[in-house]
Simulated assay, not measured.
Amino acid sequence: MRLNTMETKEVAGAEDIVIVGAGIAGLATALGLHKKGVRSLVLESSPELRASGFAFGTWKNAFRALDALGIGDRIRKEHMQAQARDLLLQALEEELPRGTIRYSSKIVSVAEEDGNVKALQLADGSILRAKLKVAQKEQKEKTHVQVLIGCDGINSVVAKWLGLAKPSYSGRSAARGFAHYPDGHGFGPNILQFNGHGFRSGMMPCNERDVYWFFTFSPSEKDNGVDESAARMKQFVVSNLRGLKVPSEVLAAVEKSQMSDVLLAPLRFRPPLSLVTASISRGCVCVAGDALHPMTPDLAQGGCAALEDGVILARCLGETTIINGGIESKRVEAGLREYARIRRWRSFDLIATAYVVGLVQQSDNAFVSFLRDRVLSGALARRLLRLADYDCGTL
């Protein structure tokens, strides 16, 4: 890839490790590296810390990762079963040294120059280069980017550069929303879930005043237009939930949601078989979080897996020695290969299981519904608990 250097400017600084994306995976990796005594620079496209999604289920594996990062007890004190992502990101950010995150820095392309030399082009025209000497006096000192970690989500630029398969549409979409109860909702710390008839829906409290709800379905021609406004989306969800005869408090939560708190999005995932031979890492470049394992939300494990990634990646990188102020590429490459080995089959397992669980739970096929309700429900629950019992280890 050729860069138009006439329209770009170099960025000053000196970082050995650059992390693209200040989401759960990016900040967890940065914090893990910080705990190991390794500096990193996190590039975030938005002008401030920004959460994606609505809620984060803190399963057992997530708390093990949070404990490894040193913030598990803080999260336990502040939250119930569902964790608002912005609060988790704030907790991770506050543990990082000031200046670790550079905002308004959106990566638009990764270039390869002279073999292993890489350059990151930002949306504002800036370029981060690797291992280049200053060629002209008027140029500022260039940033030395020796390790690149893509934590830039499902549409990851870094994953594309590595050649990972594009995320696929699952054939399902999800509406999500928040209901706010100023005087408290009175619900216990329980998750309500309703499956079948072509839908999958659930509701769970996030704290004493906020309730998160979701509704997944397979769009058809008769559903055209439901995404034109939040009001139509709410009406669509409520009418279908009434058909399922769900409890009135579930309907009330949807109806109570503000227009700005309702979101509809297609559910996408990376084909799990593509990860069997995929280049999760190449040289000193790798991916983590949704950039590695985008999955449907049916296990509520996306954020948990991102925390696992952060701890394991920080451990694998932290065990590579920084020599004379620089990073020895062969040791880094070996560390990233080890990270890829550990995360390949875990990612495959999570993505495949989430996809199958979603299809089975949402199915309106009479035979599948019979198996789900009479035979598979216990097996699916045990499978979920086994996946949530994963131990990513310590730093």
Results as ranks from 00 to 15, higher is better:
33 L>G: 02
199 F>M: 00
286 C>K: 00
344 R>Q: 09
292 L>Q: 02
115 G>V: 10
189 P>M: 09
90 Q>G: 11
38 V>H: 03
111 A>F: 10
364 D>L: 05
161 W>I: 02
116 N>D: 15
32 G>P: 00
381 A>L: 14
207 N>L: 06
244 L>F: 04
272 P>F: 09
300 A>C: 10
323 I>T: 15
226 V>R: 03
65 A>M: 03
81 Q>S: 11
232 R>S: 10
323 I>K: 15
180 H>L: 14
183 D>Y: 10
198 G>V: 00
237 V>K: 04
360 V>A: 06
272 P>V: 05
26 G>D: 01
230 A>K: 01
332 V>L: 07
158 V>H: 05
209 R>I: 14
338 E>F: 09
35 K>M: 09
135 A>Q: 11
369 S>P: 04
48 E>G: 12
158 V>N: 03
8 T>K: 12
237 V>H: 01
263 L>W: 12
217 F>R: 00
193 Q>M: 13
343 R>Y: 08
269 F>E: 07
380 L>W: 09
107 I>C: 10
185 H>G: 07
355 Y>D: 10
32 G>T: 07
186 G>K: 06
259 M>F: 09
152 D>E: 08
48 E>V: 14
18 V>L: 08
178 F>C: 07
83 Q>N: 14
108 V>R: 08
17 I>M: 06
383 R>C: 11
199 F>N: 02
249 E>C: 11
248 S>F: 11
145 V>M: 14
389 D>C: 08
334 A>T: 10
354 A>P: 01
381 A>C: 09
18 V>D: 06
107 I>K: 01
332 V>A: 07
357 V>T: 12
237 V>T: 05
2 R>T: 15
90 Q>P: 00
118 K>R: 15
209 R>S: 13
116 N>K: 12
271 P>F: 04
237 V>D: 00
86 D>V: 14
291 A>D: 00
391 D>K: 03
147 V>S: 02
255 E>T: 10
237 V>L: 08
196 G>A: 03
124 D>S: 12
199 F>E: 04
244 L>S: 04
13 G>E: 07
303 G>A: 08
325 G>M: 10
128 L>F: 12
186 G>L: 03
41 L>C: 01
136 Q>L: 15
362 Q>D: 10
31 L>W: 05
367 F>Q: 13
341 R>V: 15
144 H>L: 12
364 D>K: 03
57 G>K: 06
119 A>L: 13
126 S>N: 07
69 L>E: 00
270 R>L: 08
377 S>R: 08
254 V>D: 01
166 K>G: 12
206 C>K: 06
44 E>S: 07
